[in-house]
Design a protein around this nucleic acid. Structure first.
Length: 826
RNA sequence: GCCGGGGUGGCGAAAUUGGCGAGACGCGACGGACUUAAAAUCCGUUGGGAGGCAACUCCCAUGUGGGUUCGAUUCCCACCCCCGGCACCA
């Protein structure tokens, strides 16, 4: 008799809508935040609700997180799995401008559509604790966070360069500049200086770096943060500027023993103080404050022209064009090591925002300096000699940047580089010409945006009282609904056009005052949202102390590595600040972080222009959410991503069809098959190990393998053989699991059932397959007793007809790996 | 250029404290059962090559070239290609 599967029985859309409704009615997904045992906070990165709808990449990430969370629930944890919307920011605003719909109208519409799509995906999300960053009830607290930083002196204002499009007359984000031109109109972008708000994250660099060691994060993410923080050890060295008049007429580089200074000193940062004898010129960034003072009359016109050109150039082009340019200032400085006079130049390859904005150029041992010196005919001196080189070895078109010993460096000659760095640093320090310092690439965080679609920065300017923070009880500073949210040529936020909004009485003295019209960076919205989720209904505090204590830090955070540096670093920073203020008990928000991979489509990146974007709705309509979820996870390793191919999805559907049929047709009486049960327990073990390791693809493969065993030879499975499988499948395909669980007679949710235990005794066997090799080639296996000794294995081999024939003589060598293999070298 | 992650069948992929015959699981393909037929379902075969009626036997295969080892997808050296991020950071 055959028992053909009749998939008619399994109707995904009916099953899924039934369980969606039941979950909502029963509140299955709402964690008891106040009392639930063993709290587990499963966090996923909240999406930006675009007009295009949910991207399959979002769903891939959410499903991966959901499976992890559901698994933890089956392990007996009270799992809190919230989700919200990151809806402020320039993306929304630009899109709103493009389609001519106000963001206050557009965003709620997008959110509604997202919510509809998310609901269909079968996520265990507790929607009673959602956030929307554009909701005044949320951004009230974003503004409050700003005030916490302000009070600690960690928020300050300074002039900084921004990208400016003279045609669109607006500030552009870096990603809106393509090859130096505005992405919208193609006009060349300029830089402008505007007063902006900054957060002093640079002061936390060492802590942010050091704490990484304590975090259980994807190594790639940690490494990205280390690179971004960019710690480098070096020295600050002081160069005296010489009075240009005293030096007038002398050759560019001459040894002068007694020169009096004009008083000015230029400080440089270098990681190679050992090469100071090879420093043949200095370079200042064009914006360096000393440029004006040191420039001689003869050179002033050229210097000013160069500075003006540099100021006009946009930030992107300047950083990407590698062609060296620069001009001589006419001034000289004394090399503190040997007193030699070296010229001072300005060039845009030196960046004002790194180090001191000035360098000592050592063209013999630095590629950029070498290129510059070659172009402008500046002297190149060798001070490090590599293997087989001497002080006189010429440079062959390139600087020498390798390891070696010092030359042309007076008493330091012969020292290896590593020792020389220390020796020369100490020497210069003793002569008060420098000091060892640690420098970081990490810059302060500019949070100002001269835009509309963000939370207004809660600051008021009063002529009498100066900068006054908005008192906490007056929050939120509500973003007004203005029709003309488009940026204009003023270079300030559109909010500045609305006097009725920005004119307010000073909170301190009551005099007429003005609001800050910049809004804050969207990264600030997302830097603290995980603190808000558990406390969402609370209107009186940003986060409740007790709930926070219970639920944070986040147990596991899963998200994209595109946020490896900015979002994850800012969230760590804000948490640290709130911790220092005594508002949080922990200073690291995410105990464990795992980065998921990216989904591609048939080997290519998905994009609208290629027309190969997967719309989740279509697939869920056709296959059901359970099949879609499981298929997404089956594509490849979760942490590496996968290649979406329509062809493969049917295999997963077939698996669920067979699962359905197995439960429907199972035999209640009789006994379970021993071999099948052995396989079942092996599968329970495998899935229980793979899921927490995010090896979803292999967990699914293991369940499929078990399904093959279960139905081998068209047998009718026993109840004991299928019931545990329903629980194993549940995290992946929650709707069908609930349905089948009920079909098996259970009244409560499968997610309130315990995860099945496997019986190690059942897995243990008295015998094992001993691999038999001859000359390293596997020739077969012998079934032998566990713990068999070499001698017994050999006699078993001699007694085996098939394998014994390979044993043509006495083996020269016998390699016996107990419990594994026997290799005979003949 | 620098830092990560990868190169394994027709395809997505398994397996790396070096060793249970590389390729689990799935797709596709091929053959068969059922059917008037098709779909669906079920069963079987499927890395390449050579030999044999056959059970089988042999050779070649994890990006390329070397090396270590009884034994290498796994370790070491050199190189090539793909993906992601950073990029004049002194």
């Amino acid at each position: 008799m055959t028992a053909p599967v009749e998939p008619i029985g399994y109707d995904p859309s009916a099953v899924e809508s039934r369980w969606r409704q039941r979950w909502a009615e029963r509140g299955t997904h709402q964690a008891d935040l106040a009392h639930g045992a063993r709290p587990f906070y499963a966090l996923m990165m909240f999406p930006y609700p675009s007009a295009e709808g949910l991207h399959v990449g979002n769903l891939f990430a959410f499903t991966g997180c959901d499976i992890y969370a559901r698994f933890q629930r089956l392990q007996g944890h009270t799992v809190f799995e919230p989700l919200g919307y990151d809806a402020f920011g320039i993306h929304s605003e630009n899109f709103a401008l493009k389609v001519g719909v106000h963001p206050m109208e557009l965003i709620p519409r997008n959110i509604a559509n997202f919510r509809r799509q998310l609901d269909r995906a079968g996520l265990m999300v507790d929607w009673t604790h959602s956030v929307d960053t554009t909701d005044p009830d949320y951004y009230k607290w974003t503004q409050w966070v700003f005030l916490q930083l302000y009070e600690q002196g960690l928020a300050y204002k300074k002039a900084a360069a921004v990208n400016w499009c003279p045609s669109c007359k607006t500030v552009l984000a870096n990603e809106q500049v393509e090859g130096g031109a505005c992405e919208r109109c193609g006009t060349m972008v300029e830089q402008r200086f505007l007063e902006q708000w900054f957060f002093r994250i640079s002061g936390f660099a060492e802590r942010l770096l050091g704490n990484l060691e304590t975090l259980d994060w994807s190594e790639t993410t940690k490494q990205a943060q280390r690179n971004w923080i960019g710690r480098s050890e070096g020295a600050r060295l002081r160069f005296r500027v010489l009075d240009p008049l005293a030096d007038a007429g002398s050759s560019a580089v001459s040894v002068t023993s007694e020169v009096t200074t004009g008083g000015a000193e230029i400080e440089v940062f270098t990681t190679r103080p050992d090469t100071i004898f090879g420093a043949t010129y200095l370079v200042l960034a064009p914006e360096h404050p000393l440029v004006h003072a040191v420039t001689t009359a003869d050179e002033r016109a050229a210097v000013e022209a160069y500075r003006a050109a540099a100021a006009k150039q946009d930030l992107i082009t300047r950083k990407t064009s590698k062609e060296k340019t620069g001009v001589f200032t006419g001034a000289y400085a004394a090399n503190p090591a040997n007193g030699e006079l070296i010229p001072i130049w300005i060039a845009d390859y030196v960046l004002m925002e790194y180090g001191t904005g000035a360098i000592m150029a050592v063209p013999g041992h630095d590629e950029r300096d070498f290129e510059f010196a070659t172009k402008f005919g500046l002297p190149i001196v060798r001070v490090v000699a590599g293997e087989g080189e001497t002080a006189r070895t010429p440079f062959d078109g390139a600087p020498f940047v390798g390891e070696g010993v010092l030359v042309n460096s007076e008493e330091f000659d012969g020292l290896p580089v590593a020792e020389a760095i220390r020796a020369i640093s100490d020497w210069l320090e003793s002569r008060r010409a420098g000091m060892a310092v640690v420098n970081y690439r990490l810059h302060d965080w500019c949070i100002s945006r001269q835009r509309y679609w963000g939370p207004p920065i809660p600051i008021i300017y009063c002529d009498a009282c100066g900068t006054v923070p908005v008192p906490a009880e007056q929050l939120p500073v509500v973003l007004p609904n203005i029709p003309d949210f488009k940026p204009d040529d003023s270079g300030v936020s559109p909010l500045a056009r609305h006097e009725e909004w920005y004119r307010v009485p000073c909170p301190r003295c009551g005099a007429k005052a003005r609001r800050e019209t910049d809004v804050s960076d969207t990264f600030l919205d997302s830097a603290w949202y995980f603190l808000r989720y558990p406390s969402v209904p609370r209107a009186d505090v940003a986060f409740d102390r007790e709930l926070t204590k219970r639920w944070l830090p986040v147990t596991t955070y899963i998200g994209g590595n595109e946020h490896a540096v900015l979002h994850l670093l800012y969230a760590r920073f804000i948490t640290m600040v709130l911790h220092d203020q005594g508002l949080l008990d922990f200073e690291e928000p995410f105990t464990k972080f795992r980065a998921h991979g990216l989904i591609i489509r048939e080997g290519a990146k998905m994009s609208k222009s290629k027309g190969n974007v997967v719309n989740p709705d279509d697939y869920i309509d056709q296959w059901g959410a359970d099949t879609f979820r499981t298929y997404l996870m089956f594509l490849g390793p979760f942490e590496e991503g996968g290649d979406f191919r329509d062809a493969g999805i049917s295999g997963v559907k077939r698996f669920l069809d067979r699962l359905w049929a197995s439960v429907r047709d199972h035999a209640a009486g009789g006994t379970a098959d021993t071999e099948v049960m052995r396989k079942l327990h092996a599968t329970i073990k495998k899935v229980g190990e793979d899921v927490p390791a995010l090896s979803y693809n292999t967990a699914i493969a293991a369940m499929m393998e078990y399904m093959n065993t279960l139905r081998k030879g068209e047998r009718t499975p026993h109840r004991a053989e299928v019931e545990p499988l329903v629980v194993l499948v549940a995290p992946f395909a929650p709707h069908i699991a609930e349905e089948l669980w009920e079909m098996l007679g259970h009244r409560s949710s499968v997610f309130d059932a315990p995860w099945p235990a496997y019986d190690p005794a059942l897995l243990a066997s008295d015998t094992f397959e001993l691999v038999v090799q001859f000359n390293g080639k596997t020739r077969g296996t012998l079934t032998v007793a566990k713990g068999i000794a070499q001698a017994d294995a050999l006699s078993a081999l001699r007694g085996d007809a098939a394998l014994g024939r390979f044993l043509t003589g006495e083996p020269k060598k016998v390699i016996f790996v107990p419990g594994r293999l026997l290799n005979l070298v003949l």
